[in-house]
Amino acid sequence: MTIETDNSNVLDPNTQRQNPVSQVLPTFRPTMIINKPVRTGQRIYAEGSNLVVLGVVNAGAELIADGDIHIYAPLRGRAIAGAQGNENARIFVHSLEAELISVAGCFKVFENGIPENLRGKPVQVHLDGSDLIIQPLLS
């Protein structure tokens, strides 16, 4: 990440930065960002973090994340969020054409195709109890 040094509005030079009191850092891993197409046979695992994909995810490709998954392109393969059991994980897709989606082990396949109202639409996927909910994102 780059920080613009000449942008003096951001931080008053006279302001003293407070040093962190404790050295206990939260277990935080930066989001994994993929900016290329994910092609059939490829598997991407964002261990302990969120996953952001900017390229198309083709049929036969697999995205796995312990956190959330964001896909700003068509999802035609599989997306598995909350792979270690995080039930609050969500999947955000720009265009839903997936083979399979899963959150914390609850999965859905689209044997008879994706319902008309969701197919090719921007959606989010989350878990409600043991139900996998797919809803259109507000446009």
Binding site: P37, R39, G41, Q42, A59, A61
Partner: peptide, 13 residues
């Protein structure tokens, strides 16, 4: 098309 997609993945990786 799917097999070509696979090959493209291998080329890229």
């Amino acid at each position: 098309v799917r097999d070509s997609d696979r090959i493209l993945g291998i080329l890229a990786a």
